[in-house]
Simulated assay, not measured.
Amino acid sequence: MKALAVLSSQERLYEQSRQQFEQIVERLCCEEIHSMSHSQIERELEKMGRELMRKLFEEHLRSRGPGRIGKPVTGADAVERPCMRLHERDLETIFGTVAVERAGYYSKEKSPSLHPLDADLNLPEQKYSLELCRRVAEEAAKTSFDETFESISKNTGGHVPKRQIEELVRDAARDFDAFYKMRHEQVVERKDTGSILVMSVDGKGVVMRTSDLREQTRKAAQARKHKMGARLSKGEKKNAKRMATVAAVYTVAPFIREPEDLICENNAERCEAMRPRPEKKRVWASLKKNSAAGHRRSICRGQLPGSFASKELGRPGRRQ
């Protein structure tokens, strides 16, 4: 009897999702679908599936409640907020827009309301979910903003206008240095890494708008005379780039080979299987900051310069 009551409660929580699922099944059984090709059915099912995921997500958030505390809430400003009222906000997700109901605690003074559920769910301040923001940033790093807009609209149920895409990409890099500085401080020293320490520092030229070039390069670019109106002709690409400082540090075990390894029939496959992988690899690249002797010295000492952005890469380094 208790199990039936629990099941009945779950059915009530996800009633709209169950109805949506039944509609999908009915749709797949109708004559119109049976006359479609497999690609048409695939697109139709994806569209209906996103709506099902959206309703499941929304009903799950609703099942967690509005986040009532039952006592006054005090914020970081030391103001006690004894009053409570329900607020609803929209959250744009990869499935579409979902509504989130939250309990907002406020005081009669002019203080912003606090929503404990926002912290519990780690909801962002803006309308767009963190997963949708991540996909926007990844797409924008590969393509233009226009192509990012088309990709997000085509491959997700979320809607992000182009101007908001530009703002989200800027926000994604706002705490870049602080994030990687925190990662450096949390690095745990390992004693089982390879005995070879590999360090590399280089520069990479990136074509920029004239307004974004460094001052000296910008003056030279403005004094340049263009032969063509639409693009730079041969020899005009000078003073059009901004140099990014790039550094890499990793450890790797020695790769020792015997003469037999070089003359065996399956040498290439065997070498790839035996080759040690780089460990704890870090790469820094900064287009905004100038390179400095202090950064080079810190790299040579084996220290990691916190002012450079870093990311771990899984690609193997050069052969030893």
Rank of each mutant, 00 (worst) to 15 (best):
M1A: 13
M1R: 03
K2L: 14
S8F: 00
Q10H: 03
E11I: 11
R12W: 00
R12C: 03
Y14S: 06
Q19T: 09
F21G: 02
Q23I: 00
Q23L: 11
C30W: 03
I33K: 07
H38R: 11
R50S: 07
L56N: 06
F57R: 05
F57L: 15
L61I: 12
K71C: 14
V73C: 12
G75N: 12
E92K: 02
E101I: 08
Y106R: 08
K108T: 14
E109Q: 06
S113M: 15
L114D: 09
H115M: 11
D120I: 02
L123N: 05
P124L: 03
Q126A: 12
C133A: 10
A137N: 02
E138T: 09
A141H: 04
K142A: 12
S144P: 03
E147N: 11
T148D: 06
F149H: 13
F149P: 01
E150I: 04
I152H: 04
K154Y: 05
P161G: 05
R170M: 13
D171N: 11
R174W: 09
D175S: 08
D175C: 10
D177G: 12
Y180K: 02
K191Y: 06
S200V: 07
V206Y: 10
M208Q: 14
D212G: 02
R214C: 03
R218L: 02
K219L: 08
Q222A: 11
R224T: 10
K227C: 10
K227Q: 15
R231P: 00
L232T: 07
E236W: 01
V249C: 10
V252L: 04
P259D: 11
D261H: 05
C264L: 09
C264Q: 15
N266V: 05
N267D: 00
E269T: 04
C271G: 05
M274I: 07
P276N: 02
K281D: 08
W284V: 04
A285D: 03
A285F: 07
S286M: 07
H295C: 10
I299L: 15
C300Q: 12
R301W: 00
G306D: 14
K311E: 09
R318V: 13
R318K: 09
R319V: 15
